[in-house]
């Protein structure tokens, strides 16, 4: 990647910003997989708040990824040089604070904690996951309900939360053959993530159970129930 007026690569800090098209700026975070957890969500949350504060209504959209955040500007209001310089200042201040002043109160984000009732069911993959992780179904449910997940982003479909916090021994590859239909409300795990299907959809994750919690309501603002940085804990309302 070249460093130019429109690109910033900071070798000391694992963050860079560049224009990827004339209306879209990309912030990329190069981090090890060990860091791909709460801290990533935290950095992006702080960044989103700051971007919205600084750029205001000139922004038309923000899309958070696992390693990057896209920021879309209104075509008639984009100021390429000024905006990339402002972005550099934002990430410098955030990363500097993140690494040198971890307790900086300016980095506190307004995240919510959600307690989600869940019906565990052997209709899908509960037993198979227990077998693969070498524990009983009861132990699996207890372990799962003791975890606190952090919402990294909403993606794949409206309101689908990708949540980190799955311990290594519960991390499984996706199903070799995806299901054609995963039920609405399915709570599922794959690789390092836990997710909930807001609507029925094809999917290749291991389903542990279902929830009736509404994850996306287009009539509400915000429409997605979970926001990046929120924490989620499940409790069993029906166990087999």
């Amino acid at each position: 990647m070249t460093d130019s007026q429109f690109t910033m690569v900071n070798n000391n800090l694992p963050l860079e910003v560049q224009w990827v098209n004339p209306t879209t700026m990309m912030f990329s975070l190069n981090h090890s997989s060990a860091d791909k957890n709460k801290s990533v969500a935290h950095i992006f949350c702080v960044m989103i708040n700051e971007l919205q504060r600084v750029f205001g209504t000139r922004l038309t959209n923000i899309v958070v990824g696992f390693n990057e955040t896209l920021v879309h500007f209104e075509p008639n209001k984009v100021r390429h040089l000024d905006d990339i310089n402002t972005a550099k200042q934002i990430i410098n201040s955030i990363i500097t604070s993140r690494y040198s002043h971890a307790e900086d109160p300016s980095l506190v984000i307004s995240a919510s904690h959600h307690q989600i009732g869940m019906s565990f069911s052997d209709e899908y993959d509960l037993q198979a996951v227990a077998d693969k992780t070498q524990c009983s179904v009861k132990q699996l449910i207890e372990q799962f309900c003791s975890l606190t997940f952090t919402v990294i982003l909403n993606g794949f479909m409206p309101g689908f939360p990708y949540m980190s916090g799955l311990p290594q021994h519960l991390q499984l590859p996706r199903l070799s053959t995806p299901r054609l239909k995963v039920p609405k409300g399915a709570v599922a795990i794959a690789e390092t993530y836990c997710g909930i299907y807001p609507e029925s959809s094809p999917g290749g994750w291991h389903i542990l159970g279902t929830t009736e919690h509404v994850l996306f309501d287009i009539r509400q603002s915000p429409s997605a129930t979970f926001q990046s940085g929120d924490t989620v804990q499940f409790f069993a309302i029906k166990s087999i």
Binding site: I48, L59, T60, N61, I62, V63, V64, L70, H72, E74, P75, L153, N154, G155, F156, M157, P158, G159, F160, F216, P222, S223, A224, Q227, S228
Partner: peptide, 20 residues
Amino acid sequence: DQGRSMSGLSGVTQSGPLLV
């Protein structure tokens, strides 16, 4: 129209004109 505003944080497509 010009497309949806700040929909990405909810995992929602931005949409908007193809023929910009």
